[in-house]
Simulated assay, not measured.
Amino acid sequence: MTQGRAITMDGELWEWLKVGGATGVGIGGGAGVFMGTLLFFRWMLNFIAGRTDINQQRTDTIRNELIEELREDVKILKSENKEMREELAECERRHGISDRKIIELEGMLQAAGLARQMAQQSRAADTLARKERGE
């Protein structure tokens, strides 16, 4: 057996171990709490930012869908407007034809009226001439 100094737990080493262990536990615990707090806040910020991103994405999607629907509506309205303008031009063309026909018919009616008037004048003149002749 070797002779030497034996290390006992009651000695100086034990004191250093107690102090060092307590210090290590304190520092480790403090660092753990600090890191845990940082991780918690990081997770919280990422969660909130992620929620914001999700809401922003939903808003962007809805806005883009609305814009596309409005573009389609504008295309439909433009085509309807073009069709209505073409129909209006056709109506105006027909209206012009109708106006010309009305003017022609009014002219014919006036001519027919003048012809009747002239026929009546002619009959009246014939009747007057017969009366004067004694017929």
Rank of each mutant, 00 (worst) to 15 (best):
E86I: 13
G36T: 05
D99I: 09
D73L: 07
I54D: 07
L45I: 11
S122A: 14
L77W: 03
N81R: 10
N64A: 13
N64H: 07
L114C: 03
E69P: 03
R85A: 12
A125T: 12
N55P: 01
E106T: 11
L128V: 05
L38S: 14
I54T: 08
G50K: 10
D73N: 10
I76S: 02
L109T: 05
A115P: 00
F41H: 08
G107P: 00
Q56K: 12
R100C: 02
Q120C: 08
R133P: 02
L70N: 08
Q121A: 11
D99M: 05
W16L: 13
A111D: 10
L77P: 01
E92Q: 14
E83H: 01
Q57G: 13
S122T: 15
R51P: 01
E87M: 10
A6Y: 10
L114A: 13
I62R: 12
E80W: 03
L17P: 00
T127R: 12
L109G: 03
G50E: 02
I54S: 08
D60F: 15
A111P: 00
R93D: 09
N46S: 15
I97G: 04
R94G: 00
E72D: 09
E69N: 14
E90C: 03
E12I: 10
M35R: 02
A129I: 06
V33N: 03
G11V: 05
F40T: 05
I62P: 00
V33R: 07
K78F: 01
M1G: 13
F40C: 02
A49S: 05
G11P: 00
V74C: 03
W43R: 11
G20C: 03
